[in-house]
C-alpha cells in the first residue's frame, strides 16, 4: 500500500515531450522514402539475373551508391520510428519493453552499417 497520493504517483510519468518530433520525423522519412524506394525498386528490377560483377559495376557509380545508401538510411530510420510505436503500444512489461526498444535501435543500426558496408565495398572496389 503506497502512502503517496495518486497525483504524486502520476507525476513525472507524463509525456517525454518528444512526441511531435517523433511524428514529424516519421513524416520526413516517409516523404524521403517515396523517391528513394522507387529508385531501389528500379535498381533491383534492372539487376534481375545480373552477375555479381555487373551488380558491383553499377554500385561503383557514385550516384547509384549515394542514392542506395540514402535509401537505406531513410528506410531504416523510418523502420526504427515505426517499430518503436508498435512496441510502445503492445509491450507493457517495463523490462521487456526496454529490451525490445534497445533491440529495435541496435537491429536497425546494425542493418544500416551492414548495408553501408556492402555499398561502400562495391563502390570503392575495382
Amino acid at each position: 500500500m503506497s502512502m503517496r497520493t495518486p497525483l504524486s504517483r502520476a507525476r513525472g510519468l507524463g509525456s517525454a515531450r518528444t512526441g511531435t518530433e517523433h511524428w514529424w520525423l516519421q513524416r520526413v522519412t516517409a516523404i524521403a522514402n517515396l523517391p528513394l524506394v522507387l529508385f531501389m525498386i528500379g535498381f533491383v528490377v534492372a539487376h534481375l539475373g545480373a552477375t555479381r560483377a555487373e551488380l558491383a559495376a553499377s554500385v561503383h557509380h557514385p550516384i547509384v551508391a549515394i542514392l542506395l545508401a540514402a535509401a537505406f538510411l531513410s528506410v531504416l530510420w523510418h523502420m526504427r520510428l515505426g517499430m518503436q510505436v508498435i512496441i510502445e503500444d503492445y509491450v507493457h512489461t517495463p523490462a521487456l519493453k526496454l529490451a525490445a526498444l534497445l533491440f529495435n535501435t541496435f537491429f536497425t543500426l546494425l542493418l544500416g552499417v551492414a548495408a553501408l558496408y556492402a555499398i561502400i565495398t562495391m563502390a570503392l572496389g575495382t
Partner: peptide, 28 residues
Amino acid sequence: RITGAALYAGILLLIWWLVAAARSDTAF
C-alpha cells in the same frame, strides 16, 4: 501496421543480397 512490421524483417533480404554481392561469389 502489419505490412510495416513485415517490411522490418523483409529488408533483411535486400541487405543479404547486397552484402553477399560485396563478399564473394559463393555468398552471392
